[in-house]
Design a binder for these strands. Structure first.
Length: 400
RNA sequence: GGAGGGGUGGCAGAGCGGUCGAAUGCGGCGGUCUCGAAAACCGUUUCGGGCCUCUGGGUCCGACGAGGGUUCAAAUCCCUCCCCCUCCGCCA
């Protein structure tokens, strides 16, 4: 959530920033409700003060106190309503985007193309991943429905090698490996900003009140929820392997072939808790790690600075890496690195104790690898596997 | 899944419905002592919000797992939920 005090101090500035992500309307309502709340709170505080006694009241005092109680009940009800309205609106207002985030895309990308790296392979008739590896889509659909598949044989070995390779490289950069829960409570979903904005994307276990995470970002952000960390133990960096579940409800008809967009996939994710003044450096650092992974495999890619309206509620800025997919003749997203600044930390109550008292930390997340990387490897190298993955169990060549 | 017990400050652990934001111990911080340190002694030590402010702070309100309720008044009584522990059952 946003910093209410900062918003009060500069409502016009906030309004402009938040409107870039389409959050102007809830922001206006938030400011109105907050003003009402601030009118009520001193009145309620005053009455509560009168209600406090040192010892047993005389009968006359009890009569007086009953009147105080009546007034208080009325005002407190009004206050409670203002508070719950404010809560609700606070959940709706997105994190303002950073100044460096563009408003308009330059070309075919969902933002500004920062750079293109590597050479696209010259392939006369590129095969797609379904021809190159054994991905059992029809059997997957028979078992679980559309957008489910089995990854079998060499393709499975390739994916497993990718996870281990990525964990190796990322943990060498100081990220602690984690295997997190993938079922979480509603509060973790709200805390990370996936609720209410992206509720439609999330699978729910209604009986238990639990939700399947679409990314281990949720569990990694939740790892320290409602904690006060020591400034000198920051930054905290984690990397998690997990299976991710997404309903892909907004993607009807898109990417329906093969394993490209499925309801269940595996991912190695990076997550960092940092001091506020360090988060923009950390964001660049996450991007650099992601790029180093793509470069080490020799994947042709480009980096995109995502435009404001495409950012999630939580993200103040986001870089995607898009790999070239020869069969589609275009770049497609394979990673995403976001600086959520203090937005998740506020919602989850994650602070640190420094010299100037307690303050909210900043959180960031970024993809290391996903199953989609295996598809990019297959398509760009037409079945050949980069040498570096062999020692992690990948086959020399993937056969369907 | 069944049966019990319990959730209080960084930790441990008290707390007749009012004078309790909360005893005490440990830890932390500052000081005295010391060449220095330890010990001892003295002091200090939660978080959030509103308003004021000479930006040091002041003041009032809220918070004893969470949310409701009873009461003039709740850490203390009642209800719901969450979490932890013990025993039994089940299980990779």
């Amino acid at each position: 959530m946003i910093d209410l005090r900062a918003a009060r101090a500069d409502p016009e500035g906030f309004r402009v920033a938040v409107e870039r992500k389409g959050g102007g309307e809830p922001f206006d309502r938030l400011m109105a409700v907050d003003a009402h709340w601030r009118e009520l709170i001193p009145q309620v505080d005053e009455l509560r003060g009168r209600q406090k006694l040192k010892g047993k009241p005389t009968p006359e005092q009890v009569e007086e106190l009953k009147q105080v109680k009546a007034d208080l009940q009325r005002l407190e009800a009004e206050l409670a309503e203002a508070e719950s309205e404010r809560e609700e609106l606070l959940r709706l207002v997105p994190n303002p985007p950073h100044e460096s985030v563009p408003d308009e895309a330059t070309g075919d990308a969902e933002g500004d193309v920062v750079r293109e790296v590597g050479e696209r392979p010259q392939l006369a008739d590129p095969k797609e991943h379904l021809e190159l590896g054994r991905y059992e889509m029809e059997r997957g659909a028979r078992l679980s429905g559309s957008r489910f598949g089995y990854i079998v044989g060499d393709a499975a070995r390739l994916s497993l090698a990718l996870y281990f390779w990525a964990l190796d490289r990322v943990s060498a950069q100081g990220f602690e490996p984690v295997i997190p829960p993938v079922l979480v409570r509603e509060e973790a979903m709200y805390g990370t900003g996936f609720f209410p904005a992206e509720r439609f994307e999330i699978y729910e276990i209604a009986d238990e009140g639990l939700y399947l995470t679409g990314t281990s970002e949720v569990a990694l952000a939740g790892l320290h929820m409602s904690e006060i960390l020591d400034a000198d133990e920051l930054p905290l960096r984690y990397t998690a392997f997990s299976t991710n579940f997404r309903r892909e409800a907004g993607a009807a008809g898109r990417d329906t072939r093969g394993m490209f967009r499925v309801h269940q996939f595996n991912k190695v994710e990076m997550f960092a808790y940092v001091l506020p003044e360090e988060s923009w450096d950390e964001h660049e650092r996450l991007l650099e790690i992601e790029e180093s992974l793509a470069r080490e495999l020799g994947l042709p890619y480009r980096v995109v600075n995502i435009e404001a309206r495409e950012l999630s509620a939580a993200a103040a800025k986001r870089y995607d890496i898009e790999a070239w997919f020869p069969s589609q003749e275009r770049y497609r997203e394979i990673t995403s690195a976001s600086n959520t600044t203090d937005y998740q930390a506020r919602r989850l109550g994650i602070r640190y104790r420094g010299d100037g008292g307690t303050e909210y930390i900043h959180t960031l997340n970024g993809t290391a690898v996903t199953d989609r990387w295996a598809l990019a490897i297959l398509e760009n190298f037409q079945g050949e596997v980069p040498e570096v993955l062999r020692e992690f169990g990948a086959p020399e060549r993937v056969r369907a």
